[in-house]
Design a protein around this nucleic acid. Structure first.
Lengths: 169, 169
DNA sequence: TACTTTGTTCATTTTAATTTGAACAAAGTA
DNA sequence: TACTTTGTTCAAATTAAAATGAACAAAGTA
């Protein structure tokens, strides 16, 4: 059986690099580590499922990074493992289902933060109401600001399901 | 003229802390440094415009951080300087116009990245088309993936003006 | 002019996040 | 059983980002 190199031909090399750079800057926009983007980029333009060893040698990153990166990508729903029957090692391919990936991101990263923010604002409203009881004009002004913030927070939160729906069509 | 402390009363202290924490976690979500959130949070619940000195002492941060943080917040459109006439030092207050702030963020941080991404994808399409000429089936498969990615990129980009409109009403 | 107050800039320090690599485990093979 | 291959985990090293503080500038004041 002939050795199949990860990089099938020379023309591919530039494409690999472009794809990797693209996804690196994408994941960094989301606050994820660079290696995540590298791995996903590599898998995105791969012509076959790659093993962890392939990832390590192609990107020149450590086994540790590759292992951690792949497992994060799996939990993000961005990569799926597809062990070929009869093959020893696990193989991975990119999941191109963008809406599923974004969905995962929203549910796991965005929603929790929004909910946390909501709690914080509730507490702020309480505190500001207590201050306003003491009836300094300034305090009730602050209370109004916080209530306005609360409205924005709720507005932002209500936008999320709408975006999710939009993604799916 | 009596000394007005930044912290008008004890009840205020907890509110200050809540507000600061809220905005710290908010700006960190956007990938901005913590100090930006601290400063904005302090100004958000302040009952009068604060000087840079107020910010330094209230937050216990350095003059350097305060200066840089305030100037970033100004360029973000999140804080406005309002020098009181007759007063030596500049004073600052939070801008509560959320849509203006978000607008600024989108135009200066999001749009440029999206445009950059578009260019990268165009290059990827070119490269993938060249590979596909050589007519390996695998390459044309990759080309399809990249075209799909391009569609998503465009879709995402077209969402931005829509969100901006939504923000304004 | 000399001194004070206010604010900016940027090299250095500090802090936080990511990556590495060594130790380990699991599972197959001679 | 001893050895190899594949993969995980985590303490330590590396790297990148943010905060500090000292040097400097600008503008007011005695």
């Amino acid at each position: 059986m002939r050795e199949i190199s990860v990089q099938e031909s020379e023309g591919c090399s530039n494409l690999n690099e472009e794809a990797i750079e693209y996804f690196v800057s994408f994941v960094q926009m989301l606050g994820l580590p660079k290696s995540i983007g590298q791995i996903y980029g590599l898998l995105f333009v791969a012509t076959r499922p790659l093993s962890m060893g392939d990832v390590v040698t192609s990107l020149g990153i450590s086994k540790g990074s590759a292992s951690q990166g792949l497992s994060l990508l799996k939990t993000l729903g961005a990569v799926k493992a597809c062990g070929l029957p009869g093959e020893r090692q696990e193989r991975y391919e990119a999941d191109f289902n963008v809406s599923r990936i974004v969905n995962h991101f929203v549910e796991n990263r965005l929603q929790p933060r929004l909910e946390n923010g909501e709690q914080r604002i509730s507490r702020m409203v309480q505190l500001a109401e207590m201050n306003a009881e003491g009836s300094e004009v300034d305090s009730s002004d602050v209370l109004m600001r916080i209530r306005a913030l609360q409205k924005w927070q709720n507005r932002g939160r209500s936008l999320v399901p709408w975006i999710m729906k939009w993604l799916k069509r």
